[in-house]
Design a protein around this nucleic acid. Structure first.
Lengths: 294, 294
DNA sequence: GTCTATACCTTGATAGAC
DNA sequence: GTCTATCAAGGTATAGAC
């Protein structure tokens, strides 16, 4: 049976990657742990990167499967929205504790440049992202729609931070209680947002494309455009003579045009931003613009 | 001037580590970027790990320095507590954007087993952690004291999550506004916690253990002191005869005295802790204490 | 299909001329 | 102090006998 052998390699690889990380877990280690020769692994997986990708995908499937199974349980429909949310958070906590390696940023890993892996990674990331959006909408309904990506971000941030404490084994609490605690905090954040209606930070447009595709060119251009719009608006509010403001706005317009041109003149952009940087009120805009363009 | 050369290596290393990560930035790369031979680097830094540690330390000093500088500004005292908080959050955001590599978990890196690095890492982590606690206490006052570590955790989680969006260049907002947004969300979480008084998840005891670090001598002494205090208090709450508790508290006092003496008698410490370890309720304290002292 | 043995490469680190 | 040249270690991946 070749499948059995392949699965054994995969399971062992998952275990070792989890324990030692990508770089430190060598093919040699995995082969030894499987009780076979290194060359045999290469009969099933063409490279270490492909093996890791397979491990990554297999691991991620688990969470979504478990969440789906939850909804098929008999008692599920009788639960309150909040309790449903809590249950799902609990599952997510448990899953993430076990699969921490596969949840973090892969920026540091050599595999972060492997195209096959990146494709798989993005797919899973998007699925998780959409799933989180779904469960928050289910729990809190339409009112959070305008902020939903901010809500997802805040939820994920809190979740991951507590997770690191769990990882350090300093939380003497069952995951069920931790999940309840997190949900209570989310309650507070969300009801406040619904009441005060702040301007969302993460716009749907960005969340949509960028989470999948951080380096997506059109998305970034759109972001730059919005930032320049904001800066333009801010200039209008400055306590300065009208003609000064007019001039600053012209500079902003030139900057905007230059950013959209392909290829853009980086020297001109530098000069224009340097000019705007002279106005203290605009400095933080300019800085963020720099960040976007670099 | 040897210092100039050393600094050049350090700056280049920081740049390359930031851009490519620890593993992918080779000494070869760094040497080439410096315009010198690889062997020359080894005249200044004994190993790659030491170079990385130096880069890490140099980078971290910046944030705390900048925060300290902020407080010396003239207008500082006239700001409201909330505005002070917002300003500090802004600085932290800007700093963290620039030094992302040095802020993440190093679990995946080979350097995570280097003792020198771990010591430096923990020291900086503890300093940042204490700083965050400080600024939140300053902004919200004593009422948050019981939850302060949870508040810090939630703040850090939200902060890091938004940071990843900044990193992905999808946030069309100056850091000043993002900081204000985050502070508003923290407001909601905190006033809710003050109102509902939930049981904290992260106990001060745990916070010490995970963040205040054994390798930093003064910090460690303080940690030990607080830990013994906590243990002393716990002894007072035991359901035991008064004279038994009295005796246990005497042992704790001796332990405390011995820990503060330099050099301390490790055998005596072992004996004292072993004695306290006989009381089940104190066992987890003893274990952590042992950890701090090892 | 599975093993042994090895080719080949990239690292970090060093020796030794200048 | 700085270079060139080189080493040793450890990694991925493969060739070839069985």
């Amino acid at each position: 049976m070749e499948d059995a052998r392949k699965n054994k390699i995969l399971d062992t690889a998952i275990e070792l990657f989890r324990a030692k990380g990508y770089s430190s877990a060598s093919m040699q280690d995995i082969a030894e742990a499987c009780g076979m020769a290194k060359a045999s692994i290469y009969k099933f997986f063409a490279s270490k990167e492909e093996l890791f990708t397979a491990a990554f995908v297999a691991c991620h499937q688990t969470l979504l499967d478990r969440a789906a199974a939850l909804e098929r349980e008999e008692a599920w429909l009788n639960l309150s929205p909040k309790e449903k949310l809590r249950r799902k958070v609990e599952i997510q906590l448990e899953y993430t504790v076990a699969n921490h390696l596969f949840m973090i940023d892969f920026k540091e890993l050599p595999i972060a440049t492997n195209e096959h892996f990146i494709a798989a990674w993005k797919r899973k990331k998007a699925a998780l992202h959409a799933w989180r959006r779904e469960l928050l909408i289910e729990a809190y309904g339409d009112p959070i729609e305008p902020y939903v990506w901010d809500v997802v971000a805040i939820f994920r941030g809190i979740h991951l931070e507590y997770l690191s404490f769990v990882q350090q084994k300093v939380i003497a609490l069952p995951m069920a209680e931790l999940a309840a605690f997190i949900v209570d905090r989310m309650d507070a954040v969300i009801s406040d947002m619904i009441r005060t209606q702040p301007k969302p930070v993460i716009e749907p447009y960005n969340a949509f494309y960028s989470y999948l595709n951080p380096s997506d060119a059109p998305a970034r251009e759109e972001t730059v455009r919005r930032l320049v719009d904001l800066m333009d608006k801010r200039i209008g509010e400055l306590a300065k003579p009208e003609d000064t403001k007019k001039e600053l706005q012209q500079v902003a317009a030139m900057l905007r045009a230059e950013c959209e041109r392909v290829p853009s003149n980086t020297t001109l952009i530098r000069v224009l931003t340097a000019y705007l940087d002279g106005v203290p009120e605009l400095r933080s805009y300019v800085r963020q613009l720099y960040n976007l363009l670099s």
